[in-house]
């Protein structure tokens, strides 16, 4: 029986944080395995990207493709990069045991965990019933299917604003609902949305509005019910599409038994070196407790995590 491979680093995820960590680790000649489901992670569906230095404008899809292309310069086979979903990570003595959905085990001296998050749900009546029947969590993926229709974007941050800008050029009308008193994204994006509304274009915004129900005809969405928090009045608004853009829920199920410190938002707590409370276990990107969920920040933390892991391995004598 062949001897079990022991990796220096297993990097979990395929988004910008994981990819950057892998680049640094490959270039450091560390025995590295990058493992995740699909290249780009949340970046893949980020739509237009205009805040990545050196590239005036690109899309999440293009950037993800470029990341994959770049990695292939260093890794061409499954000994260093594998497409699979990681199910659990446990500590076995001095090593981490990383197990995928097919029960394949990868043994490693250190782990960089960069799984990012999945869309948060509203958890209101109608949301689950009409998922993919008018309720979607990805404007970039599904937006074009709502051409000429009335849609609602639920959320007030950058993702919601981005979706609103995309949909105002596709849909008949766009309703943007935030539960907060103000939108909380990039000022340039907020101003553009408010301008479109004030000019009487196809945009309506509701602040202090709580989305309480999604209604339909048993097949597709027909309306959304908003409670105005100021007046307590409820308003039913006809829409055929509801885009839920209220942030990400960190994916931490695979590491729930490691004893990691997790904050109230469910994110893994890390210091500025991306170290967690478990020696040898590093985090990067949106799964960590960093404030700013941005592609460039995720990449930056991937770099920090890789360098910290490298230092950790050097101290181990590996």
């Amino acid at each position: 029986m062949p001897e079990k491979v022991i990796y220096d680093i297993v990097i979990v995820g395929l988004g910008p944080a994981a990819v950057t960590a892998a680049l640094y680790s490959y270039r450091n000649n560390l025995k590295t395995l990058l493992v995740g489901e699909s290249f780009g992670g949340a970046t893949l569906v980020s739509g237009e990207i205009e805040n990545w230095p050196g590239i005036i404008s690109t899309t999440g899809f293009e950037l993800s493709e470029k990341m994959e292309e770049q990695l292939k310069k260093y890794c061409m086979d499954e000994t260093c990069m594998k497409r699979s979903l990681i199910k659990s990570i446990v500590k076995n003595g001095e090593f981490f045991s990383v197990i995928d959905k097919d029960e394949t085990e990868y043994v490693s001296k250190s782990v960089i965990y960069a799984t990012g998050g999945e869309p948060r749900k509203l958890n209101i009546p109608g949301e689950q019933e009409y998922r993919n029947h008018g309720v979607t969590y990805c404007a970039t993926c599904d937006g074009p299917l709502y051409r000429g229709k009335d849609v609602a974007i639920i959320g007030g941050g950058n993702s919601a604003l981005k979706s609103a800008h995309m949909m105002k050029n596709i849909a008949k009308s766009v309703l943007v609902v935030t539960i907060n008193p103000e939108f909380m994204g990039e000022q340039i994006s907020i101003k553009q949305l408010e301008k479109a509304e004030s000019e009487g274009r196809n945009v309506r915004t509701i602040k202090n509005g709580k989305t309480i129900e999604i209604k339909g005809n048993d097949k597709f969405v027909e309306s959304v019910v908003i409670e105005h928090l100021d007046s307590k009045e409820k308003e039913e608004i006809k829409v055929q599409g509801v885009f839920v853009e209220i942030g990400l829920r960190p994916i931490t199920e695979p590491v729930k038994n490691l004893g990691l410190e997790i904050n109230a938002a469910g994110e893994i707590v890390a210091n500025r070196e991306m170290k967690t409370n478990i020696p040898g276990f590093f985090v990067a990107g949106d799964v960590s407790d960093l404030r700013d969920k941005q592609i460039i920040v995720a990449s930056g933390t991937g770099c920090i995590a890789a360098l910290s892991a490298s230092e950790y391995l050097a101290k181990l004598g590996g």
Binding site: R131, N132, H133, T136, C141, P144, L145, Y146, R147, F220
Partner: peptide, 21 residues
């Protein structure tokens, strides 16, 4: 591509009875 082809988009919705890709 249902993003650019409206006829294909409608065909997809009609046949699959849903709007996910």
């Amino acid at each position: 591509s249902v993003a650019t082809d409206q006829i294909a988009a409608q065909e997809m919705i009609d046949k699959s009875g849903q709007m996910g890709v």
